[in-house]
Design a protein around this nucleic acid. Structure first.
Lengths: 237, 237
DNA sequence: TCGTCTCGATACCGATGGGTATCGTATTTC
DNA sequence: GAAATACGATACCCATCGGTATCGAGACGA
């Protein structure tokens, strides 16, 4: 009936999006709206509207607002983690690996101001609900472990010890990233672009210096390693 | 005014608390309730009840929930700042000053987990309201400046350059404190007590070493100050 | 092409909670 | 001590928002 039915053999033009499409659209809208207005301050209808739909659509894909929020956080956390890990990714050249880590982490701050706001609110919001709280904790743990493993591998590849135990170093990376992200969110003038890099350089100075020497040595020839006390080499950073 | 032998000191058996008292009680209750259940999740009545009063009392002292929240944050931020600065306080012995800074900052994390949650939520909550946002930004700026000044003074007293420009160093301190606080709030096992100290030691290692040397020199004899350009003069962009 | 099922729009409900009007009483003023 | 005032409790208002019931229309199998 109706004017429909023209989605004949070839064009296959759906007039109605598939379930997955809707879900994706809603999640994207959720990220946008929650990120802009805040989770608590946004209504389900707001999100729906931003996705070009109505509440009904949202509730047909998500059981509750909480679940929508959870799904949105999971989704984006996943993306962020894999992006971060991609930075570490098997780079044959350790130098490249190091510089990539820096790059990734650095613009993680600026580009994802929204994410830092969201995480901050979610962290606070979540505190009273044990199950959500555990979910966040476990997700955070996984992420940290992944980063810690990457750090360990990096350290082993270079044959240089990390400035801190890998797991603690991972925590510190998260903390600084998040902390600077929040400071930047409060007062963007206060956080120059290179600040994260500077801090990392300070924390990892010995590591970087040693890595550089090792690499240089390895590159120049198969020389036995020289003394590593070149304490204040000016190069890094 | 003239005739009134107005409320003679405190001994007066008042059946009704003074305005300032109620305000203080409400603010204390607000800190407690908001900190526990979250700002958005708490109602004005909750806060009032925790203070042993009703909504009416709150609204007779604060124009709106927002204003109550703002006042509570201001109040506590003030306390925190002065506590932190007390750590820097005119210590004749620079060594003591340094170690105090460490101590203060370290247990600022553990002891004030609540504060970190609050700040996180407030930061997120505040983002959509320009005036509150500016208030937070300015308050944050003042705090940073105060810390930066203290750092500068410390550096001058010791005659040793800071690892970073004072204002940036201040930001980093705030960020790490807050960041680690949040991580600890999410997963307390992940943040060992000494982590903040370790990171600070890494960041400020040269500073600490140089300070120690200088102090040792100064202590050993009343020597005129020696050249200050020691090997540690590294100060990257 | 028809029947069935799924998805999403519309309309609605009920609770929650911020905010207000009012009144009684303690405090202050004269 | 009486009048004026300030403060806080009580009762109330109503906008908002999460969630639900229902129904029409598009998708899909036969």
């Amino acid at each position: 009936m109706s004017a429909g039915s023209q989605r004949g053999a070839t064009a296959r033009s759906r007039t109605r999006p598939t379930r997955a499409e809707t879900r994706a659209r809603v999640l994207a809208a959720a990220l946008e709206v929650f990120g802009e207005r805040g989770i608590a301050a946004s209504t389900v209808s707001d999100v729906a509207a931003a996705a070009g739909m109505t509440k009904g659509a949202v509730y047909s894909s998500f059981a509750s607002k909480d679940e929508l929020v959870l799904a949105m956080m999971e989704e984006h956390a996943m993306q962020r983690l894999s992006a971060a890990l991609a930075g570490f990714a098997e780079a044959d050249d350790p130098q490249a690996a190091i510089s990539r880590v820096g790059t990734v982490l650095v613009d993680a701050i600026r580009s994802d101001a929204v994410w830092h706001r969201l995480l901050a609110e979610y962290f606070a919001l979540t505190h009273h609900d044990p199950s959500t709280r555990l979910a966040l904790r476990n997700r955070r743990r996984e992420s940290r472990d992944a980063v810690a493993r990457a750090l360990t591998r990096l350290s082993e590849n270079l044959g240089v010890a990390l400035p801190l135990p890998a797991d603690q170093f991972a925590v510190v990376l998260f903390a600084i990233s998040n902390g600077l992200g929040i400071e930047a969110g409060i007062d963007s003038d206060a956080v120059p672009d290179e600040l994260f890099g500077s801090v990392l350089a300070l924390i990892g100075r010995d590591f970087l210096v040693a890595a550089e020497q090792r690499w240089a040595v390895a590159a120049s020839a198969a020389l036995p390693r020289r003394d590593r006390r070149g304490q204040v080499r000016q190069d890094p950073a």
